[in-house]
Design a protein around this nucleic acid. Structure first.
Lengths: 258, 258
DNA sequence: ACGCATTTGTTCGTATGTATT
DNA sequence: TAATACATACGAACAAATGCG
């Protein structure tokens, strides 16, 4: 486990990829491997710091630093007195970790779902490319509406269009989605062992096309916020492509810069 | 400085504000106070960890933890072997820390500026409220265009509308802005001692109004990405209100979720 | 209600490695 | 080469939160 310290390093003329890395980074990589391998599942506690220190033959402080980084990346969650837990999309607090939609008054969105479609098909070209699928591989497409009450009436706010690798989401069906209560990412964790840990989003303003306009109950040509998301699981593997169209009349997308 | 821990606290009755908080948090607050007071300016090095440890009568590790947090918040920047520096908007790497605009091909934007307006006036109601100004207080309004080359031709991409507290930006004028080469936030640091460390943004899609459409060279009613930013300096003090209209035909707003 | 064991959180001290000047 | 600064690693002790008996 001692990696490559200067003394043991061979006469390497050029800096290779991970030429050598600090101990705590190696521990971090090992923890990630265990997470990826499913040794600890979302919501479960990982072994205590002392246990891990013994297991890896390093000091508690070194384990601590590795866990610290994973905690700031929201991969793990520390709870004083209880332990360190694998992050999950189940909890109330983190339920909307990836949803930046906020009502203009700042209140939580309180969204209802309406499933429009869930079908299995050969992935289109762009989906194949972005999800790094093999040519002709299957994908699952999900379409849904998110609705929020406005003056007491439920109004559509988001039209979501998702693409998932067919091989990972074998049993996913409209019935399964309909029956599920709770965040979709939690369903993915629980039923398909796919845990989203990171995502990249591209935002732009677009004009509503006829079909989208009808679903969102806005005029054709109305400005909509397009949010294209590529979500990743462990090992930087893309496992979801999602395109959301947000009707931002009474809601907005909130972002924090630092 | 020993805080309130029962065992380690000497018989020093301390006039602490925070009922009690970890030592490193107190150190962090003291560092922020020095930064706010201008003891160390953007780009300058702060004292070494050992020096600070001596000054505050704590261990180096405690200082280190305080600095660690300020570094992850991008308030300070560590450089091994050189020291720890006050973050600045001057450097190439951090020059566009607050600008999430990206060309669709992923390349850096390479933007040109065109100043439209810079005038001093009584702040409108909403500006007064958001910048927490006194009623009737003065504000500086700045309007500008950002242009990017498309097929070799310079085309407008962003229309920015800024509001700044008049008392903080006394000598700010169109000439001053015109003459300045470099990021605007760097001008604010250098000439007005106002350092932006954090910002909140609200994004929505809007339809282009006549005047904005003309400036951005798009049809009236075209969808534009509206980015409303409130930027803060030390002490969570809002010091800039900015509304940008992004033409997202060949560019987009990039965001990373985790 | 109380105390105890467990776990993370904080703080200190020391030594050594690595980057910069 | 030497001095300085941050980075890593270890060990130890106590604090604070939690859960259990």
């Amino acid at each position: 486990m001692q990696g490559m310290s200067a003394a043991t390093a061979p006469a390497a003329p050029l800096p290779e990829t991970p030429a050598f890395s600090p101990l705590y980074q190696q521990i971090k990589a090992l923890l990630l491997k265990s997470l990826q391998g499913g040794e600890w599942l979302p919501g479960q506690a990982i072994p205590s710091e002392v246990e891990l220190a013994a297991r890896f033959r390093v000091s508690q402080g070194t384990v601590r630093k590795a866990i610290d980084e994973l905690a700031t990346e929201n991969v793990l969650v520390r709870r004083q007195g209880k332990g360190t837990f694998v992050a999950t999309h189940a909890e109330q607090a983190t339920q909307f970790r990836f949803l930046r939609l906020v009502a203009d008054d700042g209140s939580p969105p309180a969204l209802q779902r309406r499933l429009l479609e869930c079908r299995r098909m050969r992935a289109p070209g762009e989906v194949t490319r972005l999800l790094a699928l093999a040519a002709g591989e299957a994908a699952v497409q999900v379409r849904r509406l998110l609705l929020a009450p406005l003056d007491g009436v439920l109004r559509p706010v988001v039209l979501d269009d998702l693409w998932l690798p067919g091989t990972l989401f074998k049993g996913l069906s409209a019935e399964r989605l309909q029956a599920w209560r709770g965040p979709m990412y939690r369903l993915f964790e629980a039923e398909f062992a796919v845990h989203m840990i990171r995502a990249e989003e591209k935002l732009r303003a677009v004009a509503a096309q006829a079909d989208d306009a009808a679903l969102l109950d806005v005029p054709v040509g109305a400005p909509l916020l397009s949010v294209e998301r590529l979500a990743y699981t462990y090992g930087d593997r893309p496992v979801e492509l999602r395109r959301g169209l947000y009707h931002t009349a009474a809601h907005h997308y909130r972002n924090e810069l630092s």
